[in-house]
């Protein structure tokens, strides 16, 4: 049993072109998500006024809330389009690209900044090599449990969108990359880069620029404990700074 759904999509054919709204009416099953509606448009690329139009461009991949590709603004809220079920959304459903990243086309944005943030955060283990070096260190269940929570971050960008400190006038690295510093600093083998990560965390755009709005955690589709992770990182960075100052 299909139902008719109305979508209003904010479209832009290229980064420098003007944005305009276009309305679509599609028939989808009652259990469908926003992605299913967008896919329906591709099959009949005609807008609500009956005029042919290029199919809407958006990013998606896994369609089950894991990969993070399909983040967009849905009725004004940053979230993943695949886990947004139409039956739960007020109509017309408004779809817009995330506003904190450069638009590529329609609902697709360029999230390179997130991955650059991971470079600044040195979010990795300094491995000796991929050859066989025997078992890694033993890890207690409690440590595994909370680091796993943070390692589920899929770089969707919702936290960056919701954070008032992430904007054109600030260099703030943003919640997602900062949380990875907390995670890697806690790993027994992550220790070797701890000082470098904390230098990054207290440098320009670092953890001190967090305004404690706590929006990040509220919008995170994976419900990562971002507020705690940033608070913990802040504590580490302050302690590190004091130690640096004392040892001068």
């Amino acid at each position: 049993m299909a139902e008719t759904v109305t979508l209003r999509v904010k479209r832009r054919s290229a980064p420098d072109s003007r944005a305009c709204w276009e309305e679509f009416r599609v028939r989808v099953p009652p259990t469908a998500n926003v992605v299913a509606a967008l896919k329906e448009i591709r099959k009949t690329p005609v807008n609500a006024a009956g005029r042919p139009t290029p199919p809407v461009v958006w990013d998606c991949s896994c369609l089950e809330g894991v990969c993070g590709a399909c983040a967009m603004l849905i009725n004004g809220k940053a979230r993943l389009a695949c886990t947004a079920l139409l039956k739960d959304l007020a109509q017309p459903v408004r779809l817009e690209p995330l506003s904190k990243f450069p638009v590529v086309r329609d609902l697709m944005v360029d999230r390179t900044a997130l991955f650059e943030g991971l470079k600044r955060a040195k979010a990795w283990i300094e491995l000796d090599g991929t050859h066989d070096l025997g078992p890694g260190p033993r890890v207690q269940q409690s440590l595994q449990a909370w680091t796993y929570e943070l390692s589920r971050c899929n770089s969707c960008g919702c936290c960056m969108e919701a954070c008032p400190q992430v904007n054109g006038r600030s260099a703030f690295i943003g919640p997602a990359p900062l949380a990875q510093i907390t995670r890697f600093n806690a790993h027994p083998l992550g220790e070797s880069l701890r000082a470098e990560r904390l230098e990054a965390a207290r440098g320009p755009g670092g953890v001190h620029e967090c305004g404690k709005a706590q929006n990040c955690e509220k919008v995170c589709p994976k419900r990562l404990p971002l507020v705690w992770a940033i608070a913990e990182l802040n504590r580490q960075a302050v302690a590190y700074s004091i130690r640096q100052w004392l040892s001068r």
């Binding site: 066989d132 070096l133 078992p135 083998l189 992550g190």
Partner: peptide, 21 residues
């Protein structure tokens, strides 16, 4: 087995036994 150990060293948070294995 060496592949699991490698990914463990990369920091993958594998579920653990009470002994930490």
């Amino acid at each position: 087995p060496a592949i699991i150990h490698l990914f463990d060293r990369m920091g993958v948070p594998f579920n653990r036994t009470p002994e930490g294995l």
